[in-house]
Design a binder for these strands. Sequence first.
DNA 1: CTAATCTCTCCAGTAACTGGAAGGTCAAGG
DNA 2: CCTTGACCTTCCAGTTACTGGAGAGATTAG
Lengths: 127, 127
Amino acid sequence: MNISAASKAAGLPVKTVRYYADIKVVEAPSRSEAGYRTYDDVAVRKLVFVRRSRAFGFSIEGCRELLGLYQDQDRTSSEVKRIASKRLEEIEEKQRELQSLHDELAHLVTSCRGDHMPDCPIIDYLG
Amino acid sequence: MNISAASKAAGLPVKTVRYYADIKVVEAPSRSEAGYRTYDDVAVRKLVFVRRSRAFGFSIEGCRELLGLYQDQDRTSSEVKRIASKRLEEIEEKQRELQSLHDELAHLVTSCRGDHMPDCPIIDYLG
DNA sequence: CTAATCTCTCCAGTAACTGGAAGGTCAAGG
DNA sequence: CCTTGACCTTCCAGTTACTGGAGAGATTAG
């Protein structure tokens, strides 16, 4: 499988697959005589794994760690759960931040009349 | 006011104040003979304005736009409201994304026993 | 007078790609 | 056989909003 076939199979842009190879997250298992990266099903599965992990917001380093566990027969589920729980807490923290941001901004937007006059509680608040 | 006094007054790091001057978001009104940036109260108020806007998640470009309205006597509150509403929608969109992410990950974390065995629904889901 | 503090500019690095240039490779059509 | 077009390669630059640090000049306190 050349890189474009692998990228389609994995659901990732070619550029990203190449990038993951460069930073050694998921390397191409081999190269053709002409130097083309060649992928197999195992590599594609790793790419999919990274795509899904990224979708959960894991950093590349986090993906590296998870990928290590994915391939580790001797892993314990507690290791995985610890990493996922950490990410879950980050998400919850972000949710709290966004919620207070939302409430505050929504309040300002509601109180602004939005007419042709310059008076504006939003600008007042910021200034 | 030299830059460190202005940065304290505005609640921003010196580096950031210099950066804002470089990219012409808030420039120093003048320079001393030795080339030191000199700030006045008006400039500090603009820095505070940008800090608060950034805290709402507005991009630098958004801040530039808001700052323009802040200084525009002929603005209409509808212009401000439109920009703020757009940001509010972005926040709400982000909240929805985070919520589904949260629910999915929380479900996985809950269903993982987190023991010394390798079997793990989180890894299974990702792979 | 000197040591500490402040300021300057410029360069590099961050995260995770993305776009593009210059050039080599491969398969199909004429 | 040649060409055209689709792939592939590497390398460099840009994105966002800073942040850190080097090297050098300015100012201030003691």
